[in-house]
Every structure is written in C-alpha cells, then in structure tokens.
Write a protein that binds this DNA or RNA. Structure first.
Lengths: 183, 183
DNA sequence: TTTCGGTGAGACATTGTTGTCTCATGTGGT
DNA sequence: ACCACATGAGACAACAATGTCTCACCGAAA
C-alpha cells in the first residue's frame, strides 16, 4: 500500500511540536510506520524538517489567503488571520525555533514571503490610521509570531484555555494590557 | 590559576544564546579553556545547562527586585522590569526553549517563583485598575516572556534596533498595536 | 629552586543517532 | 493464482558527542 505522505507529515509535525528533539525512530513510530520506510520517503532528518517547513509555510500562506488581509478594517483582518493560523500554531512555533539554528545558512525563501505579507498588512493598518506608527511593521510581525508561539505552548501546557487562544493573542496585540477608557 | 566560573558561564550563555545546540567543545573554546577543564567544573552538559538555569533565574530575580514591582504605577514598574531584564533577555530566551524539552520532568522550582512574582504583578496592575481584567495574569506573563524572546532574536538578527528593545516590548504589551484616541 | 595544583591536549571507550542494506512478508493489481 | 512492489524488522557501519583518563606543562607559593 502506498504510504500517505501527508499523514506522515501531520503526525511528525504533531510529535516534533511537542518534542523538537524527537528521533527519526520516534517520528516513524508516531506515524505508525517503520524507520526504513520513513527514510525511503525523506532522505534524512534534514529532508523531513524541510518538508515540514514547506508544509508549515504552505499552511500559513493558506491562512493568509483565507484571512483576506486586504479587505476591510485591519483589526478584523487580524482576527481572521489569527483564527485561520491557529491550527498551524504548534508547527509554526517548532519551525521558528528550528530556523534559529540555521545561523546564516540559506533560509527557505518562503519565510521571507510570509514576513513580507504580514509586514505589508501591518503597514496597511498603519496607513489606514488603525495601527500606531511608532511600532515598526517588522516588530509587529515578530511580536505576532512570538505571541502565537507563546500561546501555543501555554495552551499545550494547560496554562491557558485553548478556546481563549485567538482572543488573547488578538486582544493583547491590538489593545495591549492597559485598560483604556474607550473600547 | 583558578578558573573563573562566572566568566565561563557568561561566555557559555552568550554562545548558547546564539547557537543552542553548541557542543561542549565549542562552549569550552568559546570560554577559552580546554574541554577537560570545562568538564572538571561542570559534570556534563546537563550540569552546565542547570548552572545556566540558576544563573538566569538569579538574574531575572535580581531584575524583579531592582524593578520594585510593588511600588507606584504598574505601568512604570513594567518599564523598569523590562529595562532591568534586557541584559538577560538572550539567556532567558535560551532557557525557555530549553525548558520546553523537559516534558514533564522535574523543572527548576525557580521558574515557578518567577512566574508567581510576575503573575502577582499583573494581578496587582489589574486590581489597581491599570490593566484589563479579561486577559489573565498567566497569559500576560507568558506574553511578556514571548515578547522578550522575540525582541531578543529580532535584535540579534538585526531586524530591530537594539535601542528600541525596551520601548517596543513595553509599548506593545501595554498599549497594543491599535492607535487609540487617548494616550 | 622546588613543589604543588590546576590546566591543555590528546587518546580512548561509550553511547545514541543516523543512514544504508538485506530479506521475509503481505497486500493490491492483473 | 500470480506477480510486482512497498513495507517492517533487523543488522550493520559511520559518525558525532559525551565522559573519562593520562600526561606533560606552567605558574604561583614556599
């Protein structure tokens, strides 16, 4: 029977999200296949991680598309984005950490595309007068990634309810912790 | 000549902050000592990481003390805290990531203490009416860690100016990205 | 100068992971 | 029923990192 590459990647993502140092053997067992088979489909650990990278980028890109960041108020668009990216949060968190290990080496161009799109979105929000202009789009982008990762771990560790995922990220990123008079 | 344990830990922290997978050999060379000597002072990699953990906890705890979180407006206290913790941001980021690998195992009690103090601070801010009450102290604590880590990496990669470190974290955490009428 | 303690360098065994290979099995398609 | 092919299991070598050990060296103190 031909192996379901997609399903293998899913379970690998689920495992590596929890334990980023998992062995090829562990990944294989988690996917319910033999290590040899895993190796036949992914030349090595690098290839596996790269495949996961492509999967993650693809998912986030799909989330960006689904969120239609160009349409309507930027604040609403951000809500849509966070909601759409939530299922990929764990994988995204893993990949961000993994990317930090590639110091200087060639990084998947996909990340640049994502960064560019998210940054452009924040810039649009600034131009619409919805977002402050003293926080750079680059920083807002980083902060969004960071909050998504933090939230993903907090949910996984049970420190935060999973149903609050979207609300907490968006509310903090948009409104901050300060209690304001309006809104 | 007796080895300067403190200096070794500093350089180890600096290296592991940039490359979390650095070898004992690399750590030794970065500290300008032999691997054998490194091994004489830290029984193994675990011991080294645990020593770094204690160092990081100690630094953050000192930052908490220095920030005097109990005094005055919570917003000002947060500014003081972020400013005080900035030098330890990289190490903190490394340790947070490292801790995620210890799934379930005994975690250094120091983290609980830090979490408790930071959470208590956010709670105080809520009780003073300065912070919103719809975002839990636990989440605000996580978010603070996440933003500090993100900022540390962003600065290290040159995506953000280091002089903006404190401002960006505090402003985003307090006020959020939304452009508001007041403030 | 001699002695003592810490150090650097290197050798070494050990361990864990990776990557490759072989072979028996079993399932799907013909 | 037969064949082709993918798989699982296991053996295997290669490799990297760890942890231990020895030995020569050197600087400080007596």
């Amino acid at each position: 029977m031909s192996l379901d590459r997609e399903q293998v990647l899913r379970s690998a993502a689920a495992l590596l999200t929890r334990k980023s140092t998992a062995t090829m053997d562990e990944v294989a067992r988690a996917a319910g296949i033999g290590r040899a088979t895993l190796h036949r489909h992914f030349a090595g650990r690098d290839a596996l991680v790269r495949a996961l990278e492509n999967l993650g980028i693809q998912e986030v890109e799909a989330a960006l598309d689904a969120a239609a960041l160009d349409e309507g108020p930027a604040q609403d668009a951000l809500r849509r984005l966070v909601a759409a990216v939530e299922p990929s949060a764990g994988l995204l968190s893993f990949l961000v950490t993994e990317n930090q290990l590639f110091e200087g080496e060639e990084v998947n161009e996909g990340w640049s595309r994502l960064d560019a799109r998210v940054s452009a979105f924040f810039r649009r929000g600034q131009e619409r007068g919805e977002f402050r202009i003293d926080l750079t789009p680059a920083w807002l982008t980083e902060a969004l990634y960071g909050l998504i990762s933090s939230a993903a771990w907090a949910v996984q560790d049970g420190r935060v309810a999973s149903q609050d995922f979207q609300y907490m990220i968006v509310e903090l990123l948009l409104g901050g912790a300060r209690r304001s008079v309006e809104q």
